[in-house]
């Protein structure tokens, strides 16, 4: 079996790097403006943050963590924000925008080649390496918490979460978002997930997905649902053994996604998702009369946090 190496991939990397640069720009544009309708998100995107908001909030939390660690006489270096544009623009239903489909496809090869392998390197790795084991344990305990001071939070329809509210990581989040954020976020994500799950089960939405599948079949693609092309392309990407295979796959991905998006438009899949989402939200509000107030409180916390970080982005 031939294994990919940086040398073997270099031509593909260069070719696709140019593509990815285009991709990131186009995808970010699509994420910011959502010109062609993939902005269908539960609760009007209550639990969603733009990539820019995520970066600003991340940096604000990092500053708060630095201050917290300082009070414990421990040094902490702020972790740079990651590029979350691809994730922030992804639809929970797998719907595409034309701009993203044409430039990034499903983001599979682009993610492989645009440095999306992981978070930025741990800014504190060197600091930790210079500490003895005892001090490193104390440092991590101060930052992430200790088992004996963990607390459990529960909300309906969400997994139980345990974290240490006295840890500097948690104190940093509370400083930026306000007290009760952990529970409010879990609740908002649970409400969002319930809607996403309902839409996927919605008969009208499923009928339209079947029409999309027929539309794709008419163009020579045999996919039963929106995840199927992603699965097929991911499998091929994982098997790619040569630079030319990966380069070709990038083109195939964009071609497939472009056809996918055209079919989504043809069968009005985004409209079907929006209608199913409205039905699901109305059912949720009937089932849980306190939900609207809780979501409004969550939106308020989010709004205040985002507003407080306006114009605070670190250069570079």
């Amino acid at each position: 079996m031939v294994r990919l190496t940086p040398e073997r991939l270099r031509p593909a990397v260069l070719t696709c790097l140019a593509l990815s640069l285009l991709v990131v720009g186009c995808a970010a544009g699509a994420a910011d403006h959502e010109r062609d309708g993939s902005g269908v998100r539960p609760w009007s995107g209550a639990a969603r943050f733009t990539a820019d908001e995520q970066a600003r909030l991340h940096e604000a939390v990092q500053r708060a963590v630095v201050a917290c660690m300082r009070t414990r006489r421990l040094e902490y270096l702020p972790q740079p924000a990651a590029d979350t544009r691809r994730e922030a623009s992804a639809s929970p239903y797998g719907l595409l925008t034309g701009a993203t489909a044409r430039s990034d496809g499903y983001g599979i090869v682009g993610e492989m080649l645009s440095g999306g392998a992981g978070p930025p390197p741990d800014a504190n790795a060197g600091l930790l390496a210079s500490m003895g084991a005892d001090r490193a344990d104390r440092w991590r305990g101060a930052l992430l918490g200790r088992p004996e001071t963990m607390r459990q939070i529960t909300v309906p329809d969400a997994p139980a979460v345990r974290y240490d509210p006295d840890s500097c990581a948690a104190r940093g989040r509370a400083e930026v978002y306000g007290r009760g954020w952990e529970k409010a976020l879990l609740d908002a994500e649970a409400a969002t997930n319930r809607v996403v799950d309902s839409v996927r089960r919605d008969a009208g939405y499923r009928r339209t997905v079947a029409e999309w599948s027929d539309c794709m079949a008419g163009r020579g693609y045999d996919y039963p649902d929106l995840q199927a092309p992603r699965a097929a392309l991911a499998r091929r990407a994982e098997r790619a053994e040569t630079a030319s295979e990966l380069t070709a796959l990038g083109r195939t991905e964009i071609e497939t996604a472009s056809r996918d998006w055209a079919c989504e438009r043809e069968v009005r899949l985004h409209d079907a998702a929006e209608q199913a989402q409205r039905r699901a939200e109305q059912a949720e509000l009937r089932r849980d009369p306190g939900l609207a107030d809780r979501l409004e409180r969550f939106r308020g916390m989010k709004r205040r946090a985002v507003a407080a970080t306006a114009g605070t982005r670190t250069a570079g």
Partner: peptide, 14 residues
């Protein structure tokens, strides 16, 4: 796949 579908955010240390 590809950061779609339902999700949970797990805070650092949680």
């Amino acid at each position: 796949r590809n950061y779609t579908g339902s999700y949970w955010t797990i805070s650092r240390g949680a």
